Amino acid sequence: MKIIGGSLAVGAGFGAATSLVNAVSSPYSLGAPLTGTVWMSAAKVLSLLMDAGWAWAALAVVVGRWAGTRARGAVAGVLALVAATAAYYATDSFARDEPFAWYGGEMLMWWVASVLFGSALGAVGAAVGRPGVIGLLAGLTVPVGAAVQMIILPPGSRITSIPESDLAVAVVWTAAAAGAIWAVHRFRAA
């Protein structure tokens, strides 16, 4: 029960926080009073980081690691992503002053993806602490996933290039390199 409740709470917190950061980073939403300030730029960078696929995948890996076993990790990964999706769209509905029902189809699509990928990512997270090649590969999952996303679909690539995009890319590359170094160091130490 602790794993279920924790996964749901962490997921809901992540989803709501991501939606709020997105709203604060927009001059057309909650961020209107921050337009042109350093706080708006910081919110945009944070939005680009939190609303990326690798960050959501990392959520499932982290709760899977916390869950301990592959089976519990798989369940935790799914629950965290399902809760994150629900909280994200509920918060979007509030921040945009739109009916929650408008998000039903999109939310259902992401719930299906949460079941498919959350179970695998949660199980991978449970293997992060294991010694040997399995632990190494599990530890490299998020850093490699983040690096691949930076190559294929970097933050802000769907919008006109903004200075915050370059900073977000630099942060992700730095974190991915640090994560990979940590995983390799842990593997070599074991």
Rank of each mutant, 00 (worst) to 15 (best):
M1G: 14
G5R: 06
G6C: 10
G6R: 14
S7K: 02
A9P: 01
V10K: 01
G11Q: 09
G11F: 05
G15H: 02
T18A: 15
S19Q: 11
Y28V: 06
L30N: 00
L30I: 07
P33A: 03
V38D: 06
S47V: 06
L48F: 03
G53N: 03
W54N: 00
L59W: 00
V62T: 02
G64D: 00
T69A: 11
A74Q: 11
A74F: 12
A83V: 09
A84Y: 09
A84E: 07
A86F: 12
A86C: 13
A86R: 03
A87R: 05
A87N: 09
A90G: 15
D92K: 14
A95F: 11
F100D: 07
W102S: 14
W102Y: 15
L116M: 14
S119F: 04
A123L: 07
A127F: 00
I134D: 03
G135Y: 04
G139R: 05
G139V: 01
L140F: 14
L140S: 13
L140H: 12
G145I: 02
G145L: 06
A147Y: 02
Q149S: 05
I152R: 11
L153I: 12
P154Q: 04
P155V: 09
P155A: 10
R158W: 09
R158I: 06
T160C: 04
S161R: 14
S161K: 11
P163H: 08
P163W: 10
E164K: 10
S165Q: 10
V169F: 12
V169Q: 15
V172F: 10
V172S: 01
V172Y: 07
V172I: 15
W173Y: 08
T174R: 02
A176T: 04
A177V: 14
A178H: 05
I181S: 09
A183S: 14
A183R: 00
V184K: 07
A190S: 15
A190M: 13
